[in-house]
């Protein structure tokens, strides 16, 4: 009994001796409750991503609103307020035409990709055939090739530099420079694998019974794909479409090199922004304004399609 009391007294004394600072207190709590650590890590990561992604946009806005002659030694706030820049930018360069070009390139690519990836997705998702896994892996591997590796041969091909000799006849490849084709074709090839993967998962989840029912009712396999499988996979198709469109819209390499940078030559916004660069001045404010305007459509698209994309990337499961 006596020893027990002594023991108790000893422990209380020792507890009192340890003095903890705020960090040690926090660590102590975290050890007891690890969820606190995860939560703080989440906040740290979130803040980090928000700053790194949103700060450039804020900085663009700061630059755009500051008159060009004052742009030097910039702080965190704009020096002056010049909203007129958003009008001037259209006067100096036909930026709306560049945006139109970007839209046309993006939409054309999206249509081509969705069409072909749907066929591929149907085959990979719903049919069993020897070599299926190998082909999927091959597509995956190709999607990891650096686009620059394709550039030189493709440039040769699309600018008429490739000759095909058929006996006495020599056929030159058509000169497609300054048309949408040398951009749309590589884009379609480069962004197709992602869409194939998304659509394969979706089409694979549609119950066989529905396709069988459609076929007995009078469609072909293709008809069943377009009338039943694709409508039921709408979230997946939307996801693949939006991702493809955004990828094309953001693409730099082929967009920059496959035309001469004029709006009439189907140059997209990349070329438009660079077009502000004059021989004697560099209007940073106009470029910043153009960048903001150029980003807006994609931002709006993402916000509008967000629900679809999220449900497309996560769920996608259908009941019957």
């Amino acid at each position: 009994m006596a020893t027990d009391n002594q023991q108790g007294a000893f422990e209380t004394n020792r507890d009192a001796e340890i003095k903890r600072g705020p960090l040690e207190t926090w660590v102590g709590k975290v050890i007891k409750n690890p969820k606190r650590a995860y939560r703080s890590m989440f906040y740290v990561a979130t803040v980090f991503f928000l700053v790194t992604t949103l700060f450039p946009f804020y900085w663009l806005l700061v630059l755009a609103l500051t008159p060009n002659n004052l742009i030097s030694n910039m702080g965190l706030l704009p020096k002056g307020f010049n909203p007129g820049v958003f009008v001037t930018m259209f006067e100096r360069v036909p930026f709306h035409l560049y945006m139109f070009n970007s839209f046309v390139l993006g939409l054309t690519t999206t249509v081509i990709v969705l069409l072909l990836a749907s066929l591929a997705g149907y085959v990979f998702g719903r049919l069993r055939f020897p070599g299926r896994t190998f082909l999927m892996l091959a597509i995956l591997a190709i999607s990891y090739f650096p686009p620059a590796a394709f550039f030189l041969p493709l440039f040769q091909l699309f600018t008429g530099g490739t000759n095909l000799v058929l006996g006495p006849i020599t056929v030159s490849s058509p000169d497609l420079f300054n048309t949408p084709a040398p951009m749309v074709l590589p884009f379609s090839a480069l962004f197709m694998p992602l869409s194939i993967f998304i659509l394969t998962t979706f089409y694979g989840q549609i119950p066989d019974g529905l396709e069988d029912a459609a076929r007995v009712e009078g469609t072909t396999r293709l008809g069943a794909l377009f009338r039943v499988i694709i409508p039921l996979s709408a979230p997946g198709v939307a996801t693949a479409g939006v991702l493809t469109f955004i990828s094309v819209y953001n693409e730099f390499f082929f967009s920059f090199l496959m035309n001469n940078g004029e709006a009439s030559s189907w140059a997209p916004i990349v070329a438009g922004i660079l077009k502000y660069q004059g021989q004697f001045d560099t209007p940073y404010n106009l470029m910043a304004a153009a960048s903001i305007v150029g980003v807006l459509p994609v931002a709006i698209l993402v916000i509008v399609a967000q629900e679809r994309i999220v449900s497309g990337l996560t769920a996608g499961a259908l009941k019957e």
Binding site: P207, G209, L210, D212, A213, A214, R215, V216, E217, G218, T219, T220, V228, P231, L232, L318, K319, E320
Partner: peptide
Amino acid sequence: PPKDRGVAMVFQNIALFPH
């Protein structure tokens, strides 16, 4: 192909088009 056979089918999982 099924569509040219003049048959109609009722499936175990009913298979109505949900959309």
